[in-house]
């Protein structure tokens, strides 16, 4: 194979150029968002990220992104609080407990959750799930614990809690399937060692398996967080979409707004260039947040799955 053949070089260069399409996408996106948010950043500076007001009325323009940043963080946080334990439970069940015959169908059903389009989660959330939350959780809790600030507000089902729970459902497939891989990658020798000293299954899983796979599961959680942060349609349809200081998520039972729902609701409707720039500025912040989260997740997950490559037969 010493003969030089230009076809190979052409092919390699062609593939290399096309592989750069990802970079092109990233650069175009970053450029669009940065250049688009210049006007609002010039006008308000970093105060744009600390401000809470959002007023597009002419002559009174003021834009602050803080409530939506908080809205995103709080709903994603709820999603993790609820979604992660469920996902780990599912992963443990699938790897360690489920009868062989059930493993594939259950894993498959859980993965189907990821196949349902976001807008259908939203539709279901708006017309069905919202009433479950309102009638079976919010109204009883509000009646007994409504004096607590985090349960204050009028429970009508389109709020932070509903959005957080829907997000929790939506991240389950991601977190569960990666956790499953991670738990599956824990060497059997570790389990055998633990069983041999008389541990029950629960003890083996808790003290050995989960702690061995800790950083991989953490990576899965971060990846789930990334998904929750970027999710748009389902959240937009159930979060209640408030604007300005009212959108600061102070209570589970109050409507709020996330960065992505704000953009979905308002971007196309914004008429003034400063207002449009404000939406793009929020988009820029969302992009940065999602970049940080995803890079962190990928670093963690790849590190662990590399270990797996060596450890499992």
């Amino acid at each position: 194979m010493n003969r030089k053949f230009t076809g190979d070089n052409v092919f390699k260069i062609l593939a290399a150029v096309i592989a750069a399409s990802a970079v092109v996408i990233l650069i175009v996106t970053a450029y669009t968002l940065v250049s688009g948010s210049v006007p609002v950043l010039q006008r308000f500076g970093l105060g744009f990220f600390a401000g809470t007001q959002w007023n597009p009325v002419e002559g009174r323009e003021i834009f602050g992104a803080l409530p939506y940043v908080l809205g995103t963080l709080v709903t994603s946080g709820i999603a993790l609080l609820i979604g992660v334990p469920l996902s780990i439970g599912i992963a443990v069940f699938l790897v360690e407990m489920a009868p062989k015959a059930l493993r594939v169908p259950i894993a498959y059903l859980v993965e189907l959750l990821a196949a349902v389009p976001s807008v259908i989660y939203g539709l279901w959330g708006l017309f069905v799930f919202r009433f479950w939350i309102q009638n079976y959780i919010e109204i009883p809790v509000s009646n007994s614990l409504g004096w607590l600030p985090i349960f204050s507000g009028t429970p009508f089902g389109l709020d932070v809690l509903t959005a957080g729970i829907i997000l929790a459902i939506m991240i389950i497939p991601t977190v569960a399937s990666i956790s499953k891989e991670v738990i599956g990658a824990v060497p059997n020798s570790i389990r055998e060692g633990a069983y041999s000293i008389g541990a029950t299954k629960w003890e083996v899983i808790r003290h050995w398996v989960l702690s061995y796979g800790r950083s991989g599961i953490f990576g899965a959680v971060i990846l789930g967080l990334g998904r929750a942060v970027g999710e748009t349609m389902a959240v937009t349809m159930v979060i209640g979409n408030t604007i300005g200081p009212a959108a600061i998520p102070t209570s589970l039972f109050k409507p709020s707004q996330t960065m992505s729902s704000l953009i979905a609701n308002g971007f196309l409707e914004s008429t003034a260039s400063l207002e449009k720039s404000a939406y793009i500025g929020v988009g820029l912040f969302l992009l940065l947040l999602s970049l940080i989260i995803n890079i962190a997740a990928h670093v963690m997950v790849t590190r662990v799955l590399k270990v797996k490559g060596g450890a499992v037969e």
Binding site: Q53, W54, N55, V57, R60, G153, T154, F156, L158, G240, N241, T242, I243, G244, A246, K254, P255
Partner: peptide, 8 residues
């Protein structure tokens, strides 16, 4: 910028 109330 609504002073009070909930948005829908």
């Amino acid at each position: 910028a609504w002073p009070v109330g909930i948005g829908s």
